[in-house]
Amino acid sequence: MAPVDEDERSGPKVPFRGDAPAKAPKPADGPKVLFGTARAPRTLDEGPRIIGGGVARRRISCTVEDLRALDPLAAESVLRQATRAVDAVNFDDHEFDDIVRFGAHLQELHGRLAEEQLALADDERLQDARRLATDLVVRLGELDPEHLFSPGRGFLGGVRAALSRSAEAESFRERSAGVVRSARVLKERRQAFAELEDRATSLKRKLTALAAALNAHILGGMFLVRHVEEHPLPDPAAAAHHRSQKDALETRLGSLTATASSVALGERVLETMIATISGVRRFADDLVESDLPAWQTACAATLTAKSEGRPYDVSVTQGLYEKLLSTLTRRN
């Protein structure tokens, strides 16, 4: 058997006899440049934006202070958004695209959020919350201590007016027990109501952000319209082009204003939904096991004291009653 060459065994495998290839050099740090010499990219501020025909775009100067002069009450975030909206418009574009589409993405977003709000309004959990809350408000209203213990009425008259039944304490206990049973139905569904409230609250945040963006575009559009009116171009053709875009922008502002009004109305409707859901959830979470039984006990004790001719204090019963009712109706 032929001897084995130790040098040949220790080196890399080579398909054909000969020297092993040299190790490739480590590439230098930085980007790989195939041709020429590497250089830093030019920033947008280093030169004007060139549009069709080799014409340099004329940028319109717009600061937060310029916009605040138009609307002193505008929030700082709205003013900053408005400056960006103005910067995005190119009046030198012969296609009118910046004007025709000014704020259109916000209207598209409004369409999606409106569909989401309609789906929320049709949610069975919201219908249940409204029905149960209305039922409890009616039941509690029949047991209002202001009428139940009215000093201007006799015992029988006061209780009959409140309960529309006999004046017996047993009748009151049955009615108040009905209130407790309805409240426990709320408690059983509190998790579903909490999930629905989170969904409604998230939608409310989106509508609030959309309203701010619409107001910013309306403010920015008003600035652009005024700029064209106050800074006519010397070239008649260019001036006519700017005036045409100003007219188109005024039409867009009317459309955006209508959308902003629709969003404001949607916010108010959504706030009512959230108040309903939040009221029944808080009632189920916080009051069913504490204030509701306490009110029931205090009211029954006061009725008993009044029927026996003993002194009684309505303030505790009245306070508990108002707390229960205000939670359901969100008057607090």
Results as ranks from 00 to 15, higher is better:
residue 239 A to K: 11
residue 255 S to G: 06
residue 223 F to T: 02
residue 256 L to T: 03
residue 258 A to I: 06
residue 221 G to F: 02
residue 226 R to Y: 08
residue 268 R to W: 04
residue 261 S to F: 02
residue 242 H to E: 13
residue 237 A to E: 14
residue 235 D to T: 08
residue 268 R to I: 04
residue 269 V to N: 09
residue 245 Q to L: 10
residue 253 L to A: 12
residue 263 V to K: 03
residue 264 A to R: 10
residue 265 L to I: 06
residue 234 P to V: 14
residue 227 H to E: 15
residue 265 L to V: 10
residue 240 A to S: 15
residue 243 R to V: 10
residue 248 A to K: 15
residue 260 A to F: 04
residue 253 L to G: 09
residue 242 H to P: 01
residue 238 A to F: 03
residue 266 G to P: 00
residue 253 L to I: 15
residue 226 R to V: 10
residue 245 Q to I: 08
residue 243 R to F: 10
residue 266 G to S: 14
residue 257 T to P: 01
residue 238 A to S: 04
residue 268 R to E: 13
residue 230 E to D: 12
residue 225 V to M: 08
residue 244 S to C: 08
residue 240 A to I: 14
residue 237 A to D: 13
residue 267 E to L: 13
residue 233 L to M: 10
residue 223 F to H: 05
residue 257 T to L: 10
residue 242 H to C: 13
residue 236 P to G: 13
residue 238 A to M: 05
residue 244 S to W: 11
residue 268 R to G: 05
residue 239 A to N: 14
residue 247 D to Q: 15
residue 248 A to Y: 13
residue 264 A to N: 13
residue 246 K to P: 01
residue 259 T to N: 00
residue 225 V to H: 07
residue 258 A to Y: 08
residue 268 R to C: 02
residue 241 H to M: 09
residue 244 S to R: 14
residue 254 G to Q: 07
residue 268 R to V: 03
residue 262 S to L: 06
residue 227 H to K: 13
residue 243 R to W: 11
residue 256 L to A: 01
residue 251 T to P: 00
residue 249 L to N: 06
residue 258 A to M: 11
residue 261 S to Y: 03
